[in-house]
Design a protein around this nucleic acid. Sequence first.
DNA 1: GATGAATGAGCATTCATTCAT
DNA 2: GATGAATGAATGCTCATTCAT
Lengths: 207, 207, 207, 207
Amino acid sequence: MRPNDATFTETARRAQIVECAIETIAELGYHQSSVRKIAERVGVAMSVVQYHFGNKDEMVAAIVAELYRTVLAIMLPMVEAEQTARGKLAAHIRAHLKCLATYRSQQIALMEIGSNYCSGTGQRLHEVGVPLEPDQLADLAKLELETIFTLGIETGEFRALSPTSMATAVRGAIGAALLRSTGDPDFDVVGYGEDLVVAFDLATRHL
Amino acid sequence: MRPNDATFTETARRAQIVECAIETIAELGYHQSSVRKIAERVGVAMSVVQYHFGNKDEMVAAIVAELYRTVLAIMLPMVEAEQTARGKLAAHIRAHLKCLATYRSQQIALMEIGSNYCSGTGQRLHEVGVPLEPDQLADLAKLELETIFTLGIETGEFRALSPTSMATAVRGAIGAALLRSTGDPDFDVVGYGEDLVVAFDLATRHL
Amino acid sequence: MRPNDATFTETARRAQIVECAIETIAELGYHQSSVRKIAERVGVAMSVVQYHFGNKDEMVAAIVAELYRTVLAIMLPMVEAEQTARGKLAAHIRAHLKCLATYRSQQIALMEIGSNYCSGTGQRLHEVGVPLEPDQLADLAKLELETIFTLGIETGEFRALSPTSMATAVRGAIGAALLRSTGDPDFDVVGYGEDLVVAFDLATRHL
Amino acid sequence: MRPNDATFTETARRAQIVECAIETIAELGYHQSSVRKIAERVGVAMSVVQYHFGNKDEMVAAIVAELYRTVLAIMLPMVEAEQTARGKLAAHIRAHLKCLATYRSQQIALMEIGSNYCSGTGQRLHEVGVPLEPDQLADLAKLELETIFTLGIETGEFRALSPTSMATAVRGAIGAALLRSTGDPDFDVVGYGEDLVVAFDLATRHL
DNA sequence: GATGAATGAGCATTCATTCAT
DNA sequence: GATGAATGAATGCTCATTCAT
């Protein structure tokens, strides 16, 4: 009967539900993943999920937070290890695609939620924002491609490109790998990452 | 009492339903766009939709066909006007982004259907294929980025890049504009297109 | 433009619809045979059926009348050809089973309607009665098994049995052939008829 | 706070729904007995039925199992008490008609389901089989008329009749009582049973 | 903490019917 | 005579949520 025993159980249950929800969403897609099916995978009653999260929106928020934390843990060290903008860009691409390759179901789940989730009040994921702690949000900002491109221009490493446009393009090119690999299991995600590193290295050079 | 009056009514209704469905899907997302809500927007009973299309899958097929026809009508002349691979690539990017700028809700609807649609038999859109006439499918193939990149390598215009990787990257970068502009109404889609043309022009040059 | 041209067309259409309806019901069962599917088989619009019969109940009445007329045409001569009660009983059994063998889909349709039909006011077929002309109803009465059994007792051919019970039993035994043959295509309806003739011949003898 | 309180509630609800469903089907016929109407009779929301049975097919299976169990409980002791084939035949007829007299609506419901039910996959009741436990199915087999007739021929009690034909005839004659009594409330089911016993006793004698 | 039971809104679909032409 | 278009009620089903225990 340790004082925080209840909290420990609570935390474990939540983690367990989040984990199973991610698996379920990755396997069946967001809309086929009802609270009941997720609870079934956990091996508890459907109402347990409601008990721990209050409602489905809160559960999704917890899932998204967990997914972002995973991405952060992988990417942040790799990007921070590089000093130059060019190095950070390559690291960002490689790190993100490593995430895709290593944590496939997590990334699929995130994509599924991103494109399918709709809150009780009709809001989409990008409208409710990333449900992370302030310091984690700060870490996330360090990965921002806009920042990297702006830095590269300042240091003269990159040509006078539009950081916003380039960041959007890189993000899109990375995201495309997930879609692509979903339809084509033979798609070589890591190889694609190297092709992307070369392409964007060329695309950022001075004319 | 025109001989094809009945056909005229039928055609008009179908077009009207398709149009309203596109608007609804673009606004609310695919899964929030029930047959009932679409019919309400048209101003008819829900069963009218079933009368004209048989079932929801057929309605979606009609929508998708219409959306692809729109894209084709815009993009094909622009891409075919160019002779060189480099020209075709730039034209493809510009044409696609022009589509995005001009037919925003149509493109959002297509994206929504592409990532959310699940047929009665459990198939996703890419599994059921594009419901177009053979000659229109042939036209669609002419826009394929893989083909353009392969051509450019053959003619020596492009470096020895991977057509699959580059095509995936360009598609992703283009698609990102849609997501981006959804969250940020000030995002300049056409300007982004010009930035993309420059970036991929550089990225395809010989080292 | 013969004066009864319209009536002729009308009659032909009705007959055509009735025929197709019988086929459809026999094939798909009563509940799968919607007005639309029947009309499709005829090759006309669904509303044509409504035009000719007013509503579905009237159509079913027309079908049932037609089916009883078919049975009458087959059975009446065979039963009336016999003079003795014993002969009439055997003839009735043989005639009815001949109907079952020869006009299988008609009999299946009649069975389907008998057990599934429910009028707009909630009445079953046996509650609405047989929709035949008075003289045809009189002919139908001549086939009644009760009459035959009562006659046989009067003439001393049969033992002192209960006409009602025996008639019910024979009707049931005949009807069972249809159910049986539906599930088992190898079931020999005519052979079953002969077995029935023997069985009920024995069952009616004096002790 | 009894340990099996939850199970008790569940069992009671299921039994209650099955009971009301039987009544409804017997009264209105299978196809007029929607899940909604059955739930209304129980006094709960329609989705309660779905909660307890999953879908309509499962509910029907539960109903059919219950109906067969009732028949078994009545008929098995009566038939097994007899040693001779002749005795078993008479007992079968009497027992089945006792069922008909005592559990009228149950038998009507079973008939309705037998001739009208069509599963979600398009199968009829005789195609999906009787949803009973193996040992109950074994008990059911002991009541089979074919078995009794074959036995009687072997022991020399019966003439060289066709077990299949006779079984079909007896089944039909028994079933006819149900139809008959539906149209004519004065029909004496038990008396009919005795008449049937005599008739089939005669029909099975050596010539 | 956890559960089973129940709810009500929403969904796509089927169907007989109506009606102007 | 015949048609296409539209309607509204009904059906089975899924789901997130609520609540007493």
